[in-house]
Write a protein that binds this DNA or RNA. Sequence first.
DNA 1: ATCTAACTGTACTAATTGGTACAGAACAAG
DNA 2: CTTGTTCTGTACCAATTAGTACAGTTAGAT
Lengths: 206, 206
Amino acid sequence: MVNLYYMEQSTRERMINAAIDLFHQQGVNATSIDQILAKSGTGKSQFSHYFKNKEGLIHSCLVYLDEAIRGGLTPTGYDIRTWKDLESWFQKYIDFQKSVQFERSCPIGTIGNEVSSDQELLRQDIKLFLEWSRSQMARFFSEKKASGEMSAATRPEELADLCMAVMQGGMLLTKIKRNPDMFQNAATQTLQYVKSLRVSKTSRER
Amino acid sequence: MVNLYYMEQSTRERMINAAIDLFHQQGVNATSIDQILAKSGTGKSQFSHYFKNKEGLIHSCLVYLDEAIRGGLTPTGYDIRTWKDLESWFQKYIDFQKSVQFERSCPIGTIGNEVSSDQELLRQDIKLFLEWSRSQMARFFSEKKASGEMSAATRPEELADLCMAVMQGGMLLTKIKRNPDMFQNAATQTLQYVKSLRVSKTSRER
DNA sequence: ATCTAACTGTACTAATTGGTACAGAACAAG
DNA sequence: CTTGTTCTGTACCAATTAGTACAGTTAGAT
């Protein structure tokens, strides 16, 4: 019996991790299978053993990322409970990009932009993740609205969409400019807007 | 002497147009030179004659797009003078995506996401365009602030960055979901925020 | 008509691509 | 130990890739 806690990363997992990193760094179509094999120290027979083809590997990468993010195992996440969580939600993406010298945008967004119209499976993977993360953000605004902390005119889903768009667009702008200022500014303004929808305590108690 | 007005598109221009469309449709790295040649009805010798290599062609495409957009020759543009212009600014991107069945995001953003870290020329092309378009948006907010139509607390550059991020992120989300709702919602909220910074006429005349 | 430069068609190449064939090794269960 | 399954190493392939070589053609200027 192998001790799972000390077990090395499985071959399959090493390939997925190598693939995710290369996809994130240089895009899906610019990454060859051979590069992934070299980086993960595996061979072509393993690749064919664990994945049907390149698209199958991309799918596995997306499933892996989805599970990691939902499980809260990534530096960025969607467990937003407080106003402070929302503020740091944006900041975590900026910090994440800083850790790679602002040379990359969102790992999932990068893949999403390269998915072609005939790769319906991959598009669905990303779409489902997008819908989940949107609902996580909307839930936060919904709760604040229900508790009376935000105005009754607040539209939780629309605010969630705003945050998602700013995050995706912000990361792309950061990558192109090699500088997070535009993202930072967009996030600042977004937060200012969202906070402006808060109802003052006195008016709530009125 | 050839009549320029009735002259057919030059070989070079046909190649650029074919390339832009294919890049926009399936991404830069998924598009081969042979595909571009087939679509434009040209040969490999022409390609080598007009462009140094693939990167040179991409550069020419970006220059072409830059000139077309600055010249107001595209359905989307940056000549924003009125509040109505700002509203339709977002809408034009949505309409543009609708015209391609929501299967594509921003042509320039798509290229930007695929530019690798060693293609400094291409990154600069996009960066310069980005800075120009940002300044165009900021100018609008600046003027409204100077005229007293927007509050003195208004930050024109930050608002411009917000709009740019929402536009880029919104188009990406639309492409993945094959549906413009998230983009539309984000745009609606952005406009609502920006308009909330307007100063009422009475308070201006006070 | 002639010269020059811009342009184009055909053929080729060396490298890389995604994917397969297949034998053999490791390993768990009986 | 034996058996069946999972896993892996080596070799291979057909197709595609970006890019080149070079002769030939066009068109404008003199």
